[in-house]
Each structure stands twice: as C-alpha cells, then as structure tokens.
C-alpha cells in the first residue's frame, strides 16, 4: 500500500511539473534566443489569470482559457517591440533591471485595476471532483491541465524541430552571427518567441486561477520556481526544461510524502545537487554567447 501511495505522489508530481513547464518553457526560450532573463515573466502569468477570470464572467471558462493567452500574447508583441528590443545587445544588467521594473509596474497596475485583495474564481461545476483509476486518484481538472500541457508541448516541439521557423530559431540560439550572415533578420523571430513564451505563461495563469488564490503578487511567487526549473534543465535545451519540470514536481511530491515540512526546500536542494554535477544544467548546451 505504501508503494501505491508513493506512486500516486509521483504521478501527481508529473502533473504539477507539467504546469511548471508552461511557465518555464517560455522563460527558457526567451533567454536562449534573446539572451534576456525575463523577470517580468511572472507578471504575464498573473495577467493571464486576471484576464481569464474577467472573460469567464462574460463568455465562460472555455473561451477564457483561449482568449486570455491570446490577449497576453498581443501584449507580448508590444513588450518585445518597445522594450525588450532595445536591450538585446546591451549589458545584461540593464535587461534585468528593465524586466524587474516591468514586473513591479504590472503588479501595481493590477492593484490599481482589480484592487489589492484577491479576486474570486472557481472551477466550472462539470470539471470538479476526482476520477479513480483502480485505487489511483486523480483530480479531474488536473487531468485536463495535463492534456492541454501535452498538446502545447507537442505543438512547440513540432514548431521548433519540424518547421523552417524552428530551424532559424535553433540556429539563432547557437550562432546568431551566422544567421545574420545568411541574410536572415532574427528580430521577427524574437517577436514570435516572446509572444509564444508569454502566451504559455498566461495559459498557465488561466488554468491555475480556479485552483489557487488570484492576487497581485501571484506572478512574483511563480517566477522563482520557474527559474529553478530553467536552471536545472539547462539553457537551449527543449527536453532539458521538460525533464527538469517533471523532476521538480516529482521530487517535491515525494519529499512531502516523507517529510512534509521540507517540501518547498527540496527543489532548491535538487538544483544545488544538479549544478554541482552539471554546471550547465541537466541537458544544457554549450552556448558561445553565454560562456
């Protein structure tokens, strides 16, 4: 029975990892292609949650989880076009400062628009409750999240590995100078990557709004875990981030099973151990411009 319980925690950890992945993958892509540590990534996650709660009131939950990421992706275009673009070649400290500032501005803007107290959101009645597979228990809603994450993941993988768009992006990560020499402007690709990245973060926010508290600082809370996932996974590697997100989810679940008080510390210990053995992260590639 003990083993069964543990297995249940592992599976639940994988689901949670999938959710971390939605936020971490965009963060990793933006860093890999543009060399920018986007501290404002959590802010887009929070905006995704707030906008989806608003849309749910008028058009229902189904429309909200589609429209909210689209709306945030459009904000992403503005973010890239008017802010990020000026910092690709600048000192990295400047992009850190500007994205950190943007995170604060967004959080305060949320306070002004929606107020400082948290806003209320709930899962649609049809998606509540658990399903049993044998003796295994799954939250119906989280199974839906898992399906969506799997679909998004497949989509992003196909985009990066099976299209000409993806070839340019991957080349751009490794040798932007060569891409430029071939006469390809990386800028429109970067716009697309930022759109995709912040859109995925908003999707995470939209799906988690009904099961976690929706408040102005929610973006700042998620960004730390997302960074841990990116660092453990390693830069420039799609599968590194995927494996890392799942690993973080599972390690947290198992730790909570045995030592509940250490649950939150376990992921930082994991990061420490991984970096000791592999300083570039699990599957991190050697990227010239960052060495």
């Amino acid at each position: 029975m003990q083993f069964g319980f543990l297995l249940e925690q592992v599976v639940n950890g994988l689901v949670l990892g999938g959710y971390y992945l939605l936020i971490a993958l965009g963060l990793s892509l933006i860093f890999s292609v543009g060399g920018i540590v986007n501290l404002a990534h959590g802010a887009f996650y929070a905006l995704g949650a707030y906008i989806s709660v608003e849309i749910t009131k008028y058009l229902g939950f189904g429309s909200a989880v589609v429209l909210s990421p689209v709306a945030v992706a459009v904000l992403g275009i503005l973010f890239e076009r008017f802010i990020l673009r000026r910092f690709y070649d600048a000192d990295p400290i400047l992009s850190l400062l500007v994205t950190f500032a943007l995170a604060m501005v967004t959080e305060q803007a949320i306070r002004i628009i929606w107020g400082a107290p948290p806003i209320s959101a709930a899962i649609p009645q049809a998606l509540r409750g658990s399903v049993f597979l044998g003796d295994f228990l799954f939250s119906r809603y989280r199974l839906l999240i898992l399906t969506v994450v799997a679909a998004v993941l497949l989509g992003v993988w196909l985009l990066l590995h099976k299209t000409s768009f993806g070839r340019v992006v991957r080349a751009g990560i490794q040798r932007p100078d060569m891409v430029a020499a071939l006469g390809i402007r990386l800028q429109p690709y970067m716009t697309a990557i930022v759109m995709l990245g912040v859109g995925m973060a908003a999707l995470g926010g939209a799906f988690f709004a009904p099961i976690t508290i929706v408040h102005p600082a929610m973006g700042a809370e998620i960004i730390t875990v997302a960074f841990v996932v990116v660092v453990i996974g390693g830069l420039g590697s799609f599968w590194g981030v995927v494996i890392s997100a799942l690993l973080v989810g599972v390690v947290r679940g198992i730790t909570i099973h045995f030592a509940p008080a250490a649950g939150e510390a376990s992921i930082y210990l994991l990061m420490f151990l991984v970096l000791m053995v592999r300083p570039r992260g699990l599957l991190g590639e050697r990227i010239e411009k960052f060495e």
């Binding site: 319980f5 249940e8 925690q9 639940n12 950890g13 689901v15 949670l16 228990l137 939250s139 989280r142 976690t212 508290i213 809370e221 998620i222 947290r252 679940g253 909570i256 099973h257 509940p260 008080a261 649950g263 939150e264």
Partner: peptide
C-alpha cells in the same frame, strides 16, 4: 498532521496524504 510552509500554493501532495 501536515505542517505546511506559509508560501505553498499547491496543496495536491498534502491532499493525497489526507485521503490516504
């Protein structure tokens, strides 16, 4: 009894233990 850190947002692992 499950002792839970103040910054935890995901309670699913604890809820599984409750059911167990």
């Amino acid at each position: 009894d499950e002792v839970i850190a103040t910054d935890v947002t995901d309670f699913s692992p604890y809820l599984l233990k409750v059911r167990q």
